[in-house]
Write a protein that binds this DNA or RNA. Structure first.
Lengths: 338, 338
DNA sequence: CTGAAAGCGCTTACAG
DNA sequence: CTGAAAGCGCTTACAG
């Protein structure tokens, strides 16, 4: 069970290992008869290419790094999954890293990705500093930033049009006659959160409704945060009749809080979420939400990255902005419909 | 921005690159003064080690492969996340692959993992054939099988004691006075499903209740499957008052079906799930379930693998069986408590 | 149509 | 206390 290398195959087939390499890679003509001998030897010895050696020689590992805040979060889990799928189809393996909110961990990851000579990196920012990405750039490793904007000149970016999406979600509620609409946001330093809030405010303004800061609460994008923030909101003075929650995880938490307070959805209270994770279609009632274009996001991101890897080194860095769509389900209804 | 190698550092510091290597790795004594010069050069040139070259030389990549059925499933997402975390702490990067139910894809993955010279593989089986794993073994790559048993002599295995867990879940329902208890299973070819069913039957027998095959339905471990199977069950002749659902995803779907049928949980119907994914504590009502020892599962798995990698080549392959715990929440109550 | 040889960037005996 | 050199397993000009 010793490692079998090209040398062994060459000896077995009675050719030089140059030839073996060429038949494996189909990279120059080989006399059919010779080729057959090599193929037989390959099979007989169950030869396995060593891509570490190959990578060292050709300077490319066919591996990309994917850094996400937390892959056990359903939203990132779905994105990672799709990126991994598409990447594999394009011939790339993915090394996955969870950054949490730990910028030290983030730095460690980036450093090992550089050491491992990944061909490119897809980065979904957590908070923390982002200067580490600089070193990727210095090492000529292309980076594409997905989902959460980050002020970096040297990277391509694929984002959702969060502002418009926030506007649409809020407008849906306004169109239903709601006037007192709360908003549960994510962490304010995330562009994906703050932009949605801008959309929310714009819709309100358009309907001539002043923004009540009491109704806009910042939370953590997680179930528990949605639940506790909604509870606070319901206990406060201003009695909203609807809420726009900036992701589905929190929205599901908020639904639990609303029910716990003895209200029915959507009869007493309307709620719209954001993301359209798989779960959202089967809550009770099914959640009206903004659907992230998961497939398209993954596709654009990986294609952009692979394009860069394959040498599209235009210095004009691209910003791709995708649009999201409102999915009306049963968690929203007209105000007064009680 | 040319790649800086040890040679460049050596030249800058005026030493041989042997010495550079030794100061980087701390692998032999170097005169403090010389060392300082090297350190300065390292810093000045912002040297980055190339672990591809290193790997080729030392025959180890410090990378492991993790193959899961579907990382967008919350259960695998949580496990992957933990394995990734612990692995990173031990100095290993992880390449993630989703096998789906596609044995061709599984084979492809295994082959690229071999080519990439991973140091080891953690494998969570989907259906499909498993002989591909054979080739890992032939290439001296240790494998540990997690969560789903697979009949393979050369791999270590870390499993849950599914039978006992299934017994406990069912007994809980029986202790509450339920006599007509349905069971929604996963695919039958998965040991994690079939063993839990054995536990379910054992508990029934112990309470002198015959197993009604009508009450045992096989489904797909997903939300939608739980929902539709539960709907069928409620429309059938035998009217159960409780159900043991073999994972939380399906249990959440089943809860939706029960509510849709106009019944309250737990007043009219009791339900116990399995896994204790994060979500289960915030459903309405919070789900009584069997808690998977996620942390321990990840920990044992990675430690076993790293042990093998580091040369513990005992031929006695280990089977580690972990136990699960019933978490009583609010989805179960005494029968007749309506 | 095929081979001999250099070299990718490291580590590590061997030698002094 | 430090260096010269071999070699990990490949790819790819160069040569014939």
């Amino acid at each position: 069970m010793e490692k079998v290398t090209m040398k062994d195959v060459a000896k077995e087939a009675g050719v030089s290992y140059t030839t073996v390499s060429h038949v494996i890679n189909g990279t120059r003509f080989v006399k059919p008869e010779t080729e057959k001998r090599v193929q037989d030897a390959l099979e007989k010895l169950d030869y396995r290419p060593n891509s570490v050696a190959r990578s060292l020689r050709i300077g490319s590992t066919k591996t990309i790094g994917l850094i996400v805040p937390d892959a056990s979060n359903l939203f990132f889990a779905e994105i990672s999954r799709k990126i991994e799928d598409l990447g594999f189809k394009l011939g790339y393996s993915v090394i996955l890293g969870n950054s949490d909110n730990d910028s030290k961990k983030q730095t460690n990851y980036i450093n090992t990705l550089i050491a491992k000579q990944v061909d490119g990196v897809i980065f979904i920012a957590t908070g923390g500093d982002v200067e580490v990405l600089e070193s990727l750039h210095k090492n000529n490793i292309p980076v594409v930033i997905a989902d959460r904007d980050v002020p970096l000149e040297f990277a391509d970016v694929v984002l959702l049009d969060n502002e418009t999406a926030g506007y649409e979600a809020t407008k849906h509620l306004l169109d239903l006659g709601h006037k007192c609409i709360a908003c549960i946001t994510g962490p304010n330093y995330l562009s994906s959160s703050s932009k949605r809030v801008i959309g929310y405010k714009r819709a309100l303004k358009e309907f001539g409704i002043p923004v009540n800061p009491e109704l806009v609460r910042s939370s953590n994008f997680r179930f528990d945060g949605g639940m506790s923030t909604m509870t606070d909101l319901l206990e406060s003075d201003c009695k909203p009749t609807a809420v726009f929650v900036l992701n589905d995880m929190m929205a599901i938490g908020a639904m639990a809080a609303i029910r716990k307070a003895g209200m029915s959805i959507p009869e007493d209270f309307s709620i719209v979420g954001f993301d359209d994770i798989e779960l959202s279609s089967i809550t009770t009632p099914p959640l009206t939400t903004i659907a992230q274009p998961f497939d398209n996001l993954a596709k654009q991101t990986i294609e952009l990255l692979v394009g860069r890897i394959q040498g599209d080194c235009g210095d004009d860095h691209k910003r791709i902005i995708l649009s999201a769509e409102l999915i009306e389900r049963e968690s929203t209804s007209e105000k007064g419909n009680r």
